[in-house]
Each structure stands twice: as C-alpha cells, then as structure tokens.
Design a protein around this nucleic acid. Structure first.
Length: 295
DNA sequence: ACATAGACCTGTTGGC
DNA sequence: TGCCAACAGGTCTATG
C-alpha cells in the first residue's frame, strides 16, 4: 500500500497523538505479523514516555525515553488509526466508530498524558505484510542498513542518480524500486516519475549515466521528476487507493493526479502527445507508461 | 554481484 | 446472483 508519501502522511497524523504521551500499555492481539512480534514489546514499552515518531524510507520509528526505538512497517495494507474518548466538541479531537474489520486490529497502544485524554493508537493490517521490531541499542537495525538516499530534499540530484544507476542492466523501473539505491519509491510513484521524466521503464538503468558514470540530461530529468512527484504527493496527503486512509479516517488526494498509474488504454496526458497508456509486467509488478513520449 | 521468480496473506474486482 | 481467476501500495528468500 503505502509508499514514502503515505508513510510520511501517517507519521504526521500520529505526531499529535503521541505528543507528550506516555504509553500506559500495549496489547498484542496476535503473536505475529509478517514476522513474530517481539514478545516483550508490551513490557518494554509500558510506562515509556514518547519522544517522537520519525521516518526513514517507508519505516516509522517510534522513539521513547528508555526503550529501544520501535521500527514499524506498514507492508501493503497496514494502517494506524487514533481513537479517543474525548468529547468530540473539543477541537483537535475525534472519535471513531469501531471499524468493521476490527478482526485485523493487531496491536493497540494505550496512551495517557495527551491533550485529548486517554487515546488508543490501533494498528490494523489485513494482509499482515507489516511488521514491528525493536532497533538495536544504537538505534540501528539490519532492516535499515543499506537503505538508499531519501528522495526528499535536495540530496537526490542527477549526479547522484547517475552514479547509482551506472553500469546496471536492470530496467529503470526495477532500479527505481530498489530500496538500496533510492529509498521510498514504490510501484505507483516509480511509474509516475518515469512518465514525468519522459523515460521508458524498460530502458536499462545504466543508460541514464554518461560513460564515466556522470550525470546526463536524462539523469537530471529523472532525479527532478522523482523529487517532484514525492514532494507533491506528500503535500497532497498521499494517495488513497483501496484501503489506505489517514489516521483520522480521512483520505489523501494524490490519486486524482496520477498521470499513468491504473490508466491502461486511456489517453496520455502530456500536452500534444497522442499516445495511449500501456500496462506491462516487470518483475511481477504492473508498470504503466506511454510508449510515445517515454523513450 | 546482479537480476528475476516465488513466497508470504487477505480482500476486492472483473469476467463469465 | 454466484463463482473463480487475477490482481493489489512491499520486500525477504531462493535460484539462476
């Protein structure tokens, strides 16, 4: 489900709920998600003051005063929602009906000390591809090692992208999905970025680098497209395909701005282009692109 | 080292 | 309406 913009949207949604909070208790309603949940998760987090919630790539990092950082991944269908018993007339608070698929509520954080009063943060994940693990005492974890550059900010430029992709024969689409190179793109935004850059998803990744691995116009265009699509999607609050929604149950709007994703057979939206969007399968995943303006 | 297919799960969708 | 195959935002593992 969630790519970097959706995870960042979730992080921003959780921030106020965790602000100033103390974890009173944690319920594990099943022993495992994708991996076994740490059996000592409740005892380690109970009584902990929350320092903040951060993000690295598609991972959420829950930081507490004295317990190891809790690394959370949403997988394909993971989501958090916030439940508060506070008076709904108090600004900034809200209350949810118990959701229909509460059978997939797997982890519940009971929080106290927040402005909204006692609050529950509930992790729901029908497919259970998500997971939660404790970081090592130094804050690191094998899961985070080797992650590539964040596509936010200005770190990712044409020079870096060309160097990362130089010499690779895998298709551009596969390289953009490789979290060891650029961390945070998923199946939707990889297709969208390639369309914006006018580059074919089937082109060899190395072909956007010059002979010495330096930047080219193609690398510059692609780096800019990646940065732009991620920044715009975060700005829009992420997309809301299928089951994805915000922590307060509201929806993101970026899916209204897809230029190629899930648009097979429809007209290319590039001005002056008379192409039609095609769908192909690359490494088992759908890719959408315009064969006319993406070369 | 690099690249691709299979695996993990449940829910939704589209064709017949 | 019902049934079933195909597909879904991710990424780890095994195999070439």
């Amino acid at each position: 489900m969630p790519e970097l913009p959706e995870v960042e949207t979730v992080r921003r949604g959780l921030e106020p709920a965790f602000d100033g909070a103390v974890i009173e208790s944690v319920e594990l309603r099943r022993p495992d998600l994708r991996f076994p949940l740490p059996a000592d998760l409740p005892v380690r987090l109970a009584g902990q003051r929350v320092l903040g919630i951060a993000r690295r790539a598609k991972y959420l990092l829950l930081q507490t005063a004295a317990a190891p950082t809790l690394i959370c991944h949403l997988g394909m269908t993971g989501s958090f929602r916030i439940e508060s018993d506070a008076d709904s007339s108090v600004p900034g608070t809200f209350r949810h009906e118990r959701s229909k698929d509460s059978v997939h509520d797997h982890v519940v954080f009971h929080l106290i000390g927040t402005r909204a009063g006692p609050t529950r943060v509930v992790f729901n994940d029908p497919r259970r591809f998500g997971f939660m693990l404790f970081a090592n005492s130094d804050g690191g974890h094998a899961m985070l090692d080797g992650l590539g550059v964040e596509p936010t900010g200005n770190a990712l430029d044409g020079f870096l992208l060309a160097r990362l992709f130089a010499g690779r024969s895998a298709p551009l689409k596969a390289a953009l999905l490789d979290q060891k190179l650029v961390a945070g793109l998923g199946n939707i935004y990889a297709s969208e970025a390639l369309w914006r850059a006018g580059l074919s998803p089937q082109r060899a990744a190395g072909s956007i680098a010059s002979k010495d691995g330096g930047p080219t116009q193609r690398a510059e265009r692609l780096a800019e497209a990646v940065r732009d699509v991620i920044a715009e999607a975060i700005e829009a609050g992420g997309s809301s395909l299928r089951d994805y929604m915000h922590v307060d149950g509201s929806l993101g709007y970026f899916q209204h701005r897809f230029f190629v994703y899930d648009r097979e057979g429809e007209a290319c939206r590039k001005p002056g282009c008379n192409g039609v969007i095609h769908r192909i399968v690359q490494s088992g995943r759908s890719t959408f692109f315009c064969p006319v303006c993406q070369r």
